[in-house]
């Protein structure tokens, strides 16, 4: 039960302060075992703007990841998570480099928006293979399609639920589109709108439905059920087309 929520929005400068204190605490507690501390994702993307409660993602690259080292991290993480919505990922440098085959999209997304708070820049020389990127992208798109259908079967009577599913899936589709572009052209724009437009141009797939979803997001009210269903249908077709295209995409 939550009686009421605090109204104050976590300001960017406050988050910076907490992150800097977190860095100092982690440096102090794990010492030379800390190879790198990287902040990535939405907070870096929206630098300067007020952070509307989005999660602050942090990657800790550690020389050792045994329970003793993790124990040392517990206190700094607890202090920081009490102040900001922090999400921490811990890896060793070897794990990071050897995981590019299984998490290529995740790492590529990280490369788009990140800052090194201390230590080496471990993200700049990650080697991501196009075939892994393509495979992962195809898997994600097909997975999304299955989930979209499952969600439709479950929620087709509620336009609010369908809308929520669409908003969620939309953000992830943009990410997949970026990966598709990287596979095909070797470059992807940073801006989400540009990603969708470039994707449409490069693959000859209409992405108008994304504009409709954006409009729905902005209007912030529940759209008519039939309208939502039609948008949902168009969105499913877009994902279907995208997954079929990436399936056939040849790697040079």
């Amino acid at each position: 039960m939550k009686l009421f929520k605090p109204q104050s929005v976590t300001s960017a400068s406050r988050i910076r302060g907490v992150l800097e204190a977190f860095r100092d605490d982690v440096c102090e507690s794990v010492g030379t075992d800390l190879k790198s501390l990287v902040v990535y994702g939405a907070f870096i993307r929206n630098q300067g703007a007020e952070n509307q409660g989005a999660i602050v993602n942090v990657m800790l690259v550690l020389g050792k990841t045994d329970s003793q080292t993790l124990d040392k991290l517990a206190a700094p993480i607890a202090t920081a998570t009490n102040k900001i919505p922090l999400s921490v990922m811990t890896l060793t440098p070897t794990e990071l480099h050897s995981s590019c085959d299984v998490f290529p999209i995740k790492f590529q997304e990280m490369q788009l928006h990140y800052r090194v708070l201390t230590g080496e820049d471990v993200l700049c020389d990650l080697r991501i293979s196009d075939e892994h990127l393509r495979l992962r992208c195809e898997q994600r798109l097909k997975n999304a399609l299955l989930r979209l259908r499952a969600a439709y079967l479950l929620h087709n009577l509620s336009s609010e639920h369908l809308q929520a599913v669409l908003f969620d899936a939309h953000a992830h589709l943009i990410c997949d589109m970026g990966a598709c572009l990287m596979v095909k052209c070797g470059m992807q724009p940073e801006d989400a709108g540009d990603v969708a437009d470039t994707f449409a141009d490069e693959f000859g797939i209409t992405v108008d439905v994304l504009t409709a979803i954006d409009a729905m997001k902005i209007s912030n009210s529940t759209t008519d059920r039939e309208d939502v269903k039609s948008i949902y249908d168009r969105f499913m077709r877009l994902v279907e087309e995208a997954s079929a295209t990436i399936d056939k995409l040849e790697i040079e």
Binding site: G53, I55, N82, P85, L86, V88
Partner: peptide
Amino acid sequence: IRSGYSGPSI
């Protein structure tokens, strides 16, 4: 690890 935060909604 994402627990303990009691600030604004995510």
